[in-house]
Amino acid sequence: MSAGKMLKQNQGVTSSPKSRLLGFATLLGLVTLFVFAFFLTDPDVRLHPTTGEEIGQFDAVRLLYLHVPMAIIGPYLAPLVGAVASIGYLIKRTPWWDVTAHAAIEVGAIFCGLVLVQGSIWGRPVWNTWWEWGDVRIMTTLILFLMLLGYLALRRVVADEHKQARRSAIVALVAAINLPIINRSVEWWESRTLHQKSTLSELKIEDLTFFTLMMGIVVFLMLFTWLVLHRFRLGWLEKESLKQEALTAIEERRAVAVTNEEETS
């Protein structure tokens, strides 16, 4: 079923029975995640093998159950979906790809901003700093965030629909160049940067900590899907509404012209 037909069936509403079910499951998942992250898991405390002193992040580790899932979506998945949809648009030139790219990048920009803010809150107790200009991952993520905002600003510039979609697609692809740099920065600049290396790829996590982190990733993926779905439907409705407005205007002008013609004859 096409997106247009689907929205007609839903009479302009962005939700559907399936999306409502997804929304409810996501909400339930978020509540469960918060309970696991803030109450059921233990703080990160280990004994140093030689000094015997307690080391770790203590309660600050709980923020990572939200930070890591958000970081997978904001600076990686969302711009990647946006870039793939932009390539789709440049090949197919159909609005479906453009609206998909816009939806993914808009949601991605929100997640990217949240990752920077929430990472800063985590960084204060653990790193002893709110912000670190010398950290390559933070800087590349900040640059990506600014580029995503640039993409959204570009979409507000009044222009021909296709020209706007083409320009936006190019910006989305330029922003995507940053993605592998963000991902590999902790490896490429390992001893020159503050950010820790990936825990998941080296599996340096176990038991309930691992379970909670994986649950966080699944729940945030559901949240991302739900948000993008609704933003897509809203974007599609906006396009349909503009098209409808143009058709109504033409009909009105035609009616006026016919009336004028009848009066003169």
Binding site: N128, Q196, E202, K204
Partner: peptide, 11 residues
């Protein structure tokens, strides 16, 4: 001074 935390969460 900033702390360079490692990526190990095993107990």
């Amino acid at each position: 001074m900033v702390v360079k935390h490692d990526n190990d969460y095993r107990t």
